[in-house]
Amino acid sequence: MKNHVWRPLFVVLGLVAGILLFRLVYVPADFGTQEQGYTFGFHRLGNEQEWKDYPAKYKNNSYCTECHDDKVKSWEASAHAIIPCENCHGAAFGHPDKPEKLTIDRSRDLCIRCHAKLLMPSSGRNKIAGIDSEQHNAKTECVECHNPHNPSLEDM
């Protein structure tokens, strides 16, 4: 056959080789259909491990027991025992190394998340003792009068 027929074929073969080579270099070896098949599982497998290695910030209540057992004891016996320490004090991260102290939030905003009186008849909110934040000793921090680790009205 004549030269002008062969020439484009070589170019095409070159293109094919080039693109395959690019793919080989650019697409990681672990990219492909994984467990969930082509439609939902087409991905880079290594990314699953990357997500598993994501750093956690929150610890849990039993971690605090090691060092703040006085607080834990009174909290444990109170109506607030269902509220994790870190909800009010923020995530532990590397506490007590970094940060050395956790935040102490004395704001009324913290307490009225649960105690602001709303009428929610089809929800657990109605079972929590509610106050009207504008009426109930407004402008004073709740913890001036109530102990957050033991909110019992008798022990006030």
Partner: peptide, 13 residues
């Protein structure tokens, strides 16, 4: 009860 602690925890975590 709509306290929103889940939203806060999720954002920080």
């Amino acid at each position: 009860v709509g306290c929103g602690f889940c939203v806060k925890a999720c954002k920080i975590e």
